[in-house]
Amino acid sequence: MIPFIQTTLDGLMVGSSYGLLALGFALIFGVMRRLNLSYGPSIMIGAYLGTLLYIKFGPPTYVVAIVAVAGSVMAGIYVERLCFAPLGVGAGVASMVSSFAIWMQLEQASLLMLPRHSYPFPSLTGGELWSLGPFVVRPDYLIMLAAMLAMSAALTLLLYRTRFGLGLRAIVENSLAASLSGIDVERTMLKAFALASAIGGVAGFLVLSANQQVTAMLGMWATLKGLIAMMIGGLGSIPGAIVGGLALGVIEAHSQNLFGPQVRDLAAYAVLFVLLVLRPGGILGTTAVRRGMGQRGGDRWTTT
């Protein structure tokens, strides 16, 4: 029983990094209804800038963190301007492919900065372990868990308690009506994108400092894990991102524990596939409900 609980705990810990990644993804997808494949590579740019600084000058860790987040925000804004803002209605696939092209670009830019496969990354805690009774936890991951919960709470407040959030939700519901209400759709979208990239940047920094190293796989890893966690939890929703991230972490931990690393990934994809087939909206999916509510009333009096 104790090993089982320990594995679950490990899964929840790693899952919080997936949850954080999914949070940024969900924000972008929720607002734009478009897929940003460059999400991970944007994080990678920030992380690599931070790493470059770290191995050249060895600044305090918080400076590395700031650079990592700022770098991924900059890259995110670049992606939005190039792949999303200029492409009009009905060009969702083009936006996605365009963001893939920029993925290639950002990844090569990162590798030009730091060509080796892996580099050291500053740790927040020194990688120590804490024991809680019979269980072992890593403070690194506790920080991540706390960051995930704090960010999702902050994001919820932002969406439901501020004018910016009101505008964002209005755009999601009907961007034409939003612009007719005086909401600057383009600027609001850009801000949302920057915010999502910042969340991604924080996620990237925390993951790397827990691993104490950064590798060239970061871009692909972050995009895939964020995307899978978002799909498992529920498209474009904050609680969905968290639930999806944690679920993915637990699934991976147990399958790895039972069958090894290859089966770990296999199990994650199998669960994702089966879930999508049986429950396309994800664990907390609300799409079906939403469609019904949007239609009722609106058409009741319409004669056509």
Binding site: L82, L87, G88, A94, S98, A101, Q105
Partner: peptide, 21 residues
């Protein structure tokens, strides 16, 4: 050489702005 994907990625993105299909 080392800038291949930077050039190519940029070209594709610009192409898709001009011709999204």
């Amino acid at each position: 050489a080392g800038y291949r994907m930077i050039v190519f990625g940029g070209l594709v993105a610009v192409l898709l702005i001009v011709r999204p299909r």
